[in-house]
Design a protein around this nucleic acid. Structure first.
Lengths: 228, 228
DNA sequence: AGACTGAGTTAGGTATACTTAACTCTGGAA
DNA sequence: TTCCAGAGTTAAGTATACCTAACTCAGTCT
């Protein structure tokens, strides 16, 4: 396995994650640029370079978009495994709170050795998910599929269990933490406001009803428990 | 404090360490090139760049050599603090042996946050030295001075306590470990072979006399205990 | 079918940090 | 005091990954 630059690893990871969130087959330049914090021109340049490389990590069609080859996907999953193991380790061993781990893990993920990965995985007892509930890819690149949906898409009356929360925004994580909304907390949708209005939910962590904006519910994933 | 690139941090660290080992006021291009694994031309280029920068980290005189400014030295010590804290942490928390930590720490030292540094320092109880016996600079940049000399320079008949061992060569570290020669092991010089010949020492870790080559004794530092 | 718009690309340029090859300086020995 | 070897520098070029500005494409709306 050749080693890839942090930049390349970030691109592969971003392609994987955007495809995952958006569901679309192909990932566009603009979405990548947005996620990576670079210009669209930079993304085009990198995609051309990667597509021309003998590594065959991506399939890139001009004006259409990118997707990962199996090899590219495996590499992306290795980086994601690093990231999620690190987040779990920082929480469990060094007392980081769940809103602090993301940035640190983003830097460390490109730098740790396979040995380091193995040691923290063993220390943690080979965990299945990180502090935000995201599943941790196994060494062989396998990732258990989940039947999770956005809290946004949970129908009124339905009950769900939080399976995962996006780790991107520390502010959001602190907010959710204050509300006690983290995996595997159960909740029920009571009401949905008009025009993408707030979602009213009931959870055992709060005696009163909680109203959540779209921004929030888009970043919270749940597994449906009942269809009342 | 501005952040510096891994390359810059490596140069500052190397300048500091070479000056330390060699004792000379100025560090030469060749020594830096050797230590950093790059060509002499590359070193010249980087030194010119650093000297021209408004950061004022080094003082560089063409054809003469470099030295660190107080600011450069402080930065170097911060990197070295990272390195030695990491080595200690990897040993104490993740079960690395002392010959495995150097490479991992070399990569991690450029990437960890101040927060991470603080957390591992606290976890370790703010240790004074790393697994090889090297002193760990404090946060304020202070470093307790030691009265240590090379084992090479310990006179016949003198007794010393190993204070530090170079962490550069894993092979050497495994060798020393097998002989039980690590801080703060005491030993006595029995005899010195001719022509930089082997140094014969006696240590409580071995019933028989141990013969050490120059390559080895140059990398072992001791504090003189007695002058018999 | 044509035009518009947002997404995407191209062209040209920057910064970092490295290389090789050829040249120059410095300090010690003859 | 000159010469020479090794240390150091310069010049030119490479690779990576980013930028801005200007252009083009694709798909939709009319």
């Amino acid at each position: 396995m050749p080693r890839h630059s942090p930049a390349v690893e970030d691109y592969l990871k971003a392609i994987y994650e955007i495809r995952q969130e958006a569901g679309a087959k192909l990932v566009g330049t603009a979405a990548l640029a947005e996620k990576l914090g670079v210009t669209r021109a930079s993304v085009t340049g990198m995609l051309k370079k990667l597509a021309a490389s003998t590594e065959h990590l991506i399939v890139y069609t001009r004006y259409r978009g990118v997707r990962l080859t199996p090899k590219g996907e495996k590499t992306a999953l290795e980086v994601i495994r690093h990231h999620r193991l690190l987040e779990t380790y920082l929480t469990a061993a060094l007392g980081y709170s769940w809103d602090q781990v993301h940035t640190e893990a983003d830097h460390l993920e490109h730098v740790i050795s396979e040995d380091f990965e193995e040691r923290i995985a063993a220390f943690l007892g080979h965990p299945q998910s990180d502090p935000h509930g995201a599943p941790i890819p196994q060494r062989d690149g396998s990732l258990p599929a989940r039947r999770e949906i956005r809290l946004t898409d949970l129908a009124v009356g339905q009950e769900g269990a939080i399976s995962r929360v996006s780790d991107r925004d520390p502010e959001l994580l602190r907010y959710l933490d204050r509300l006690g909304l983290r995996p595997p907390q159960r909740l029920r949708v009571l009401e949905r406001g008009p025009f993408d209005g707030p979602l009213h939910i009931q959870s055992s962590t709060s005696p009163s009803v909680i109203a959540l904006s779209r921004r929030v519910t888009d970043d919270v994933y749940v597994v449906v428990l009942s269809v009342n």
